[in-house]
Amino acid sequence: MTQNTLKAKQRRLSPWQILSQAIANFFTTIFHGIINLMDLIMHPLQDRLGVRGMAYVFVLPNLLIFGIFILLPMLLNFYYAFTGGTNLFPQDRPFVGMENINTIFSCESIFDHNSCREDLFWRAVFNTLFFVVFQVSIMVFMALITALALNRQIIARGFFRSVFFYPVLLSPVVVALIWKWILQQDGLMNAIIVSLGGEKLPFLINAQWAQVWVIFISVWAQMGFFTLILLAGLQAIPGEFYEAAAIDGATGWQTFWGVTLPLLMPTMFVVLLLSLIRAVQVFDQVFPFTGGGPGTTTLYMVQYIYSTGFSNQTKEYGLAAAASLLMALCLLMLTVLQLRAGRSSDIA
């Protein structure tokens, strides 16, 4: 009797467990339903195609979507970059050769991007460069510090780890609105500054401040993700290395430079590569946050492509595609550089 009630008690689940199980069951049921139905088609198919033929059936749906929505567009992008006009459909677009690329590169002086015909593009390029350099270096540095702190023997490590990760899950629009609310003229940040005896600052109206805060919010929103990767890298370092360093009488600082950092380098390369690629494409948080402003001070490459191709009055698809092409080239170079650097550090 008592044993039975004990068992019943153990079996009783919290409402949240029931809910999450229900959600999991829902997905599994749908998933299995689709799969069982498809067996009706798949079995006769295997009789005709044979075992090896089935492999093609398995890759087909994925490959189809891949081909139509990634590979084909990659090729089409070249077509757009070398054709002009404002028509979207390829048959209506006249071939213009290098004109779009020439438009981008036609500058009176190569030292002054304001003298270029398409000066917005160059402003976007320089803004992006500025953003990438500062955002990536600040974020990787902060993520490293945080990962090192989380890797120490501390209480509630799981809690702190999720704390830093929480903003990663927030959608870019939400992140932008949270900080817009805090940084507005009569917002919390200015209230803190005034209460400390300062003057209200025009955070989102002043060009320099806007650039600073754009970098800040993207570090705030993404740091947790890179912290997790670095933390995993730190935990993969075998303890014997630290023991050996301790026997040799190394100080904490020496251990960090001599053991932790060199062994963390492969992870650091991954983090750098991922954060660089993502920083070059900055758009999601910034667009709802500043809309590229004030003026064009936080206009970045992706927003340039977006507004040239989609939101401006005249939709200059050719110009936007040419800009995408240059950006793709940039990403490709970054990837190759990183891979090469990563490989040489492995050898050393």
Partner: peptide
């Protein structure tokens, strides 16, 4: 294609 972000092929994907 892991390294080809959507933002690089916006216009042709929109066409498709």
């Amino acid at each position: 294609t892991l390294m080809v972000p959507l933002s690089v092929i916006l216009i042709p994907v929109f066409l498709v």
